[in-house]
C-alpha cells in the first residue's frame, strides 16, 4: 500500500509540474488541480497509513487512525476548490481582455501597459 500511495503522489506531482511549466492558462489550471490532488493525498498519508482503524475512541479499538490530517485535508480541499474557481475566472477574463493565454508576463505579445484608468 505504501508503494501505491507514494508512487501515485509522485506521478500526480510530476504531471502537475509538467503541466504548470506549459505556461498557458488551461494546462496550468489543470496542473494546479493535479498538484492539489497530490498534496491532499500526501497530507492524508502523513497521519500514517492504516486499514480499518477507528478515528474515535472505542473500547475494542486496537489502535487509532489520526483524525487531524483528515481535518487538514478537508480544509485544504475546500480552499483549493475555491482557489481553482478564482483562477479559472481570472484566466478567462485575462484571455478575453488581452487575447493571450500566456501565464508568463515577459512573454506577452507586444508590450502592453496597464490602461491607467
Amino acid at each position: 500500500m505504501e508503494f501505491i500511495v507514494a508512487s501515485s503522489v509522485g506521478v500526480l506531482t510530476a504531471a502537475g509540474v509538467y503541466l504548470l511549466l506549459r505556461a498557458r492558462t488551461y494546462p496550468v489550471i489543470l496542473g494546479l488541480t493535479l498538484l492539489t490532488y497530490a498534496v491532499n493525498f500526501f497530507l492524508f498519508a502523513m497521519g500514517r497509513l492504516s486499514v480499518n482503524l477507528p478515528p474515535v475512541i472505542s473500547d475494542e479499538a486496537l489502535g487509532y487512525a489520526d483524525p487531524l490530517p483528515q481535518a487538514l485535508v478537508l480544509t485544504a480541499i475546500v480552499i483549493s476548490f475555491g482557489m481553482t474557481a478564482v483562477a479559472v475566472a481570472m484566466a478567462l477574463r485575462a484571455y478575453l481582455e488581452s487575447d493571450s493565454d500566456h501565464v508568463d508576463l515577459s512573454r506577452s505579445e507586444g508590450s502592453e501597459k496597464a490602461d491607467h484608468s
Binding site: 485575462a94 488581452s98 493571450s100 496597464a114 490602461d115
Partner: peptide
C-alpha cells in the same frame, strides 16, 4: 485592464 488581468493570473498561479 488587459495587462493588469494577466499580471493577476501570474500572481494567482
Amino acid at each position: 485592464g488587459p495587462a493588469r488581468m494577466r499580471a493577476g493570473v501570474q500572481y494567482v498561479v
